[in-house]
């Protein structure tokens, strides 16, 4: 988005100033676990999806559920 500006003083005006701001969307994502229960040695099947352009999904922690 852009703010267009001018400055006035003593009856005189200078125009043509602007500044831009990029407002980035807060990224969203969905994790779909297609294999919530697996046998020992099998691979998990978890799908991560996001509609946000330029997204990157990081796994921040993994822990065992008792």
């Amino acid at each position: 988005m852009r703010y267009n500006l001018e400055v006035l003083a003593n009856g005189c005006t200078t125009t043509g100033f602007f500044t831009d701001v990029i407002v980035n969307p807060n990224p969203t994502f969905v994790a779909s676990n297609f294999a919530p229960e697996i046998c020992h040695g099998d691979q998990t099947s978890i799908f991560f999806g996001s509609a946000t352009a330029g997204h990157q999904i990081n796994v921040v922690s993994v822990f065992m559920v008792p």
Partner: peptide, 29 residues
């Protein structure tokens, strides 16, 4: 704040060395 995350505030400092100056927005897109 040329680039912000949604929900954050912009911070654009406006200044003029000209005596008696007033700064005016001509348009915002």
């Amino acid at each position: 704040t040329p680039s912000i995350c949604s929900g954050s505030a912009v911070n654009v400092l406006l200044n003029s060395a000209t005596s008696g100056a007033v700064i005016r927005i001509t348009s915002v897109n």
